[in-house]
Protein backbone atom coordinates (compact mmCIF):
# COMPACT_ATOMS: atom_id res chain seq x y z
CA UNK A 1 0.00 0.00 0.00
CA UNK A 2 1.40 3.41 -0.98
CA UNK A 3 -0.50 5.28 1.71
CA UNK A 4 2.18 6.89 3.89
CA UNK A 5 -0.10 6.76 6.92
CA UNK A 6 -0.57 3.03 6.57
CA UNK A 7 3.18 2.54 6.68
CA UNK A 8 3.51 4.36 9.98
CA UNK A 9 4.64 2.46 13.01
CA UNK A 10 3.31 2.46 16.55
CA UNK A 11 5.05 5.72 17.43
CA UNK A 12 3.31 7.60 14.62
CA UNK A 13 -0.23 6.41 15.46
CA UNK A 14 -2.54 8.78 17.34
CA UNK A 15 -3.79 7.69 20.76
CA UNK A 16 -7.52 7.00 20.66
CA UNK A 17 -10.16 5.77 23.11
CA UNK A 18 -11.31 2.14 23.24
CA UNK A 19 -14.95 2.86 24.16
CA UNK A 20 -15.29 5.41 21.35
CA UNK A 21 -13.60 3.22 18.76
CA UNK A 22 -15.57 0.12 19.79
CA UNK A 23 -18.80 2.05 19.31
CA UNK A 24 -17.58 3.35 15.95
CA UNK A 25 -16.83 -0.21 14.84
CA UNK A 26 -20.12 -1.66 16.07
CA UNK A 27 -22.11 1.12 14.40
CA UNK A 28 -20.68 0.00 11.05
CA UNK A 29 -21.89 -3.60 11.45
CA UNK A 30 -25.06 -3.99 9.39
CA UNK A 31 -24.90 -7.63 8.24
CA UNK A 32 -24.87 -9.65 11.44
CA UNK A 33 -21.09 -9.70 11.69
CA UNK A 34 -19.83 -11.79 14.62
CA UNK A 35 -17.67 -10.04 17.21
CA UNK A 36 -15.54 -11.83 19.81
CA UNK A 37 -14.61 -9.54 22.72
CA UNK A 38 -11.42 -10.64 24.48
CA UNK A 39 -10.86 -10.83 28.23
CA UNK A 40 -11.41 -7.73 30.35
CA UNK A 41 -11.85 -4.26 28.94
CA UNK A 42 -12.12 -5.47 25.32
CA UNK A 43 -15.35 -7.33 26.03
CA UNK A 44 -16.54 -4.79 28.62
CA UNK A 45 -16.53 -2.04 26.00
CA UNK A 46 -18.14 -4.39 23.48
CA UNK A 47 -20.90 -5.03 26.01
CA UNK A 48 -21.27 -1.29 26.65
CA UNK A 49 -21.61 -0.65 22.91
CA UNK A 50 -24.95 -2.50 22.88
CA UNK A 51 -25.59 -6.20 23.36
CA UNK A 52 -25.84 -7.39 19.78
CA UNK A 53 -26.89 -11.06 19.55
CA UNK A 54 -23.79 -11.73 17.41
CA UNK A 55 -21.41 -10.64 20.21
CA UNK A 56 -19.43 -13.12 22.30
CA UNK A 57 -17.92 -11.98 25.59
CA UNK A 58 -14.82 -13.97 26.57
CA UNK A 59 -14.57 -13.71 30.37
CA UNK A 60 -11.44 -15.88 30.88
CA UNK A 61 -8.97 -17.77 28.67
CA UNK A 62 -6.66 -14.79 28.09
CA UNK A 63 -5.20 -14.77 24.59
CA UNK A 64 -7.85 -16.94 22.94
CA UNK A 65 -10.17 -14.34 21.39
CA UNK A 66 -8.44 -14.65 18.02
CA UNK A 67 -8.54 -18.47 17.80
CA UNK A 68 -12.20 -18.46 18.91
CA UNK A 69 -12.92 -15.97 16.13
CA UNK A 70 -11.00 -18.17 13.69
CA UNK A 71 -13.20 -21.13 14.67
CA UNK A 72 -16.37 -19.09 14.12
CA UNK A 73 -14.98 -17.89 10.77
CA UNK A 74 -14.27 -21.48 9.69
CA UNK A 75 -17.77 -22.59 10.68
CA UNK A 76 -19.50 -19.69 8.92
CA UNK A 77 -17.37 -18.61 5.94
CA UNK A 78 -20.09 -16.28 4.63
CA UNK A 79 -20.11 -14.18 7.81
CA UNK A 80 -17.48 -11.57 8.68
CA UNK A 81 -15.93 -12.18 12.10
CA UNK A 82 -14.09 -9.63 14.25
CA UNK A 83 -11.82 -10.40 17.22
CA UNK A 84 -11.31 -7.49 19.63
CA UNK A 85 -8.41 -7.95 22.01
CA UNK A 86 -5.77 -6.11 24.01
CA UNK A 87 -2.02 -5.92 23.50
CA UNK A 88 -1.26 -7.98 26.61
CA UNK A 89 -3.67 -10.68 25.45
CA UNK A 90 -2.36 -11.11 21.92
CA UNK A 91 1.22 -11.08 23.23
CA UNK A 92 0.33 -14.32 25.05
CA UNK A 93 -0.74 -16.11 21.87
CA UNK A 94 1.35 -14.76 18.99
CA UNK A 95 1.34 -18.13 17.26
CA UNK A 96 -2.36 -17.58 16.58
CA UNK A 97 -1.39 -14.87 14.09
CA UNK A 98 0.57 -17.45 12.11
CA UNK A 99 -2.39 -19.82 12.24
CA UNK A 100 -4.73 -17.12 10.90
CA UNK A 101 -2.26 -16.33 8.12
CA UNK A 102 -1.85 -20.00 7.20
CA UNK A 103 -5.62 -20.47 7.08
CA UNK A 104 -6.00 -17.40 4.83
CA UNK A 105 -9.15 -16.55 6.78
CA UNK A 106 -10.89 -14.26 4.28
CA UNK A 107 -13.72 -13.39 6.64
CA UNK A 108 -11.64 -12.61 9.75
CA UNK A 109 -10.43 -9.28 11.11
CA UNK A 110 -8.39 -8.89 14.30
CA UNK A 111 -8.61 -5.53 16.09
CA UNK A 112 -6.03 -4.90 18.80
CA UNK A 113 -6.39 -2.14 21.41
CA UNK A 114 -2.83 -1.26 22.43
CA UNK A 115 -2.23 0.98 25.43
CA UNK A 116 1.02 -0.74 26.38
CA UNK A 117 -0.51 -1.75 29.70
CA UNK A 118 -2.02 -4.64 31.58
CA UNK A 119 -4.64 -2.04 32.44
CA UNK A 120 -7.03 -4.21 34.44
CA UNK A 121 -4.40 -5.60 36.83
CA UNK A 122 -2.89 -2.27 37.82
CA UNK A 123 -1.44 -0.84 34.60
CA UNK A 124 1.84 -2.74 34.58
CA UNK A 125 3.69 -2.28 31.29
CA UNK A 126 3.37 -4.78 28.45
CA UNK A 127 6.06 -5.52 25.88
CA UNK A 128 4.60 -2.96 23.47
CA UNK A 129 5.73 -0.31 25.97
CA UNK A 130 9.25 -1.67 25.52
CA UNK A 131 9.07 -1.41 21.73
CA UNK A 132 7.34 -4.54 20.45
CA UNK A 133 5.36 -3.50 17.36
CA UNK A 134 2.30 -5.71 16.96
CA UNK A 135 1.70 -4.73 13.35
CA UNK A 136 5.26 -5.68 12.44
CA UNK A 137 4.76 -8.97 14.31
CA UNK A 138 1.48 -9.67 12.49
CA UNK A 139 3.08 -8.91 9.13
CA UNK A 140 5.99 -11.15 10.02
CA UNK A 141 3.53 -13.91 10.92
CA UNK A 142 2.14 -13.66 7.39
CA UNK A 143 -0.90 -11.37 7.69
CA UNK A 144 -0.16 -9.04 4.78
CA UNK A 145 -3.03 -6.65 5.54
CA UNK A 146 -1.72 -5.47 8.92
CA UNK A 147 -2.01 -1.78 9.74
CA UNK A 148 -1.75 0.74 12.51
CA UNK A 149 -4.84 2.94 12.55
CA UNK A 150 -3.19 6.33 12.21
CA UNK A 151 -6.22 8.24 13.46
CA UNK A 152 -9.98 7.87 13.77
CA UNK A 153 -10.68 8.49 10.09
CA UNK A 154 -8.05 5.95 9.11
CA UNK A 155 -9.54 3.42 11.55
CA UNK A 156 -12.95 3.91 9.98
CA UNK A 157 -11.58 3.46 6.47
CA UNK A 158 -9.75 0.27 7.48
CA UNK A 159 -12.93 -1.16 9.06
CA UNK A 160 -14.92 -0.27 5.95
CA UNK A 161 -12.37 -2.12 3.83
CA UNK A 162 -12.38 -5.13 6.17
CA UNK A 163 -16.17 -5.31 5.82
CA UNK A 164 -16.08 -5.68 2.04
CA UNK A 165 -12.60 -6.92 1.08
CA UNK A 166 -11.08 -10.32 1.74
CA UNK A 167 -8.98 -10.77 4.90
CA UNK A 168 -7.41 -11.70 7.08
CA UNK A 169 -7.00 -8.24 8.54
CA UNK A 170 -4.96 -7.09 11.51
CA UNK A 171 -5.72 -3.56 12.68
CA UNK A 172 -3.92 -2.17 15.71
CA UNK A 173 -5.18 0.91 17.52
CA UNK A 174 -3.22 2.87 20.10
CA UNK A 175 -5.53 3.70 22.98
CA UNK A 176 -5.46 5.64 26.24
CA UNK A 177 -5.85 4.18 29.74
CA UNK A 178 -9.46 5.27 30.31
CA UNK A 179 -11.79 2.85 32.04
CA UNK A 180 -14.31 0.91 29.90
CA UNK A 181 -17.82 2.30 29.45
CA UNK A 182 -19.46 -0.66 31.20
CA UNK A 183 -18.97 -4.13 32.64
CA UNK A 184 -20.24 -7.37 31.10
CA UNK A 185 -22.87 -9.39 32.94
CA UNK A 186 -21.01 -12.55 33.93
CA UNK A 187 -23.21 -15.45 32.86
CA UNK A 188 -21.13 -17.65 30.52
CA UNK A 189 -23.85 -20.10 29.47
CA UNK A 190 -26.30 -17.27 28.71
CA UNK A 191 -23.57 -15.53 26.70
CA UNK A 192 -22.92 -18.66 24.64
CA UNK A 193 -26.59 -19.45 24.01
CA UNK A 194 -27.38 -15.87 22.98
CA UNK A 195 -24.36 -15.86 20.66
CA UNK A 196 -25.27 -19.18 19.05
CA UNK A 197 -28.83 -18.02 18.56
CA UNK A 198 -27.49 -14.79 17.04
CA UNK A 199 -25.45 -16.85 14.59
CA UNK A 200 -28.28 -19.27 13.88
CA UNK A 201 -25.96 -22.11 14.90
CA UNK A 202 -27.25 -25.64 15.40
CA UNK A 203 -24.22 -27.95 15.65
Amino acid sequence: MSDVKAQSGRNEASVMNRSVMTQLLVDKLKSGEAVIGGIGNSNFDLWASGQRPQNFYMLGSMGLATPIALGVALAQPQRKVFALDGDGSILMQLGALGTVAAEVSKNLAIIIWDNGLYQITGSQKTLTSAGADLVAIAKGAGIAQSYWAFDQAHFESLIERALVEDGPWFIAVRIDAEKPAGVTERDPVKIRLNFMQGLGAKP
Partner: peptide, 26 residues
Amino acid sequence: FTVVCPAREEEAVAIVAGAYMGGRRG
Protein backbone atom coordinates in the same frame (compact mmCIF):
# COMPACT_ATOMS: atom_id res chain seq x y z
CA PHE B 1 -12.24 -33.00 6.83
CA THR B 2 -11.11 -29.42 7.35
CA VAL B 3 -7.74 -29.52 9.11
CA VAL B 4 -6.20 -26.65 11.06
CA CYS B 5 -2.64 -26.78 12.39
CA PRO B 6 -2.19 -24.18 15.16
CA ALA B 7 0.99 -23.50 17.10
CA ARG B 8 -0.37 -24.47 20.52
CA GLU B 9 -2.99 -26.83 21.94
CA GLU B 10 -4.80 -23.88 23.58
CA GLU B 11 -5.40 -22.49 20.12
CA ALA B 12 -6.80 -25.82 18.95
CA VAL B 13 -9.21 -25.82 21.91
CA ALA B 14 -10.39 -22.28 21.12
CA ILE B 15 -10.74 -22.93 17.39
CA VAL B 16 -12.92 -25.98 18.03
CA ALA B 17 -14.93 -24.02 20.63
CA GLY B 18 -15.49 -21.16 18.19
CA ALA B 19 -16.49 -23.53 15.43
CA TYR B 20 -19.04 -25.20 17.72
CA MET B 21 -20.59 -21.84 18.52
CA GLY B 22 -20.74 -21.21 14.79
CA GLY B 23 -22.57 -24.49 14.26
CA ARG B 24 -19.75 -26.80 13.19
CA ARG B 25 -18.51 -29.86 15.05
CA GLY B 26 -14.79 -30.32 15.60
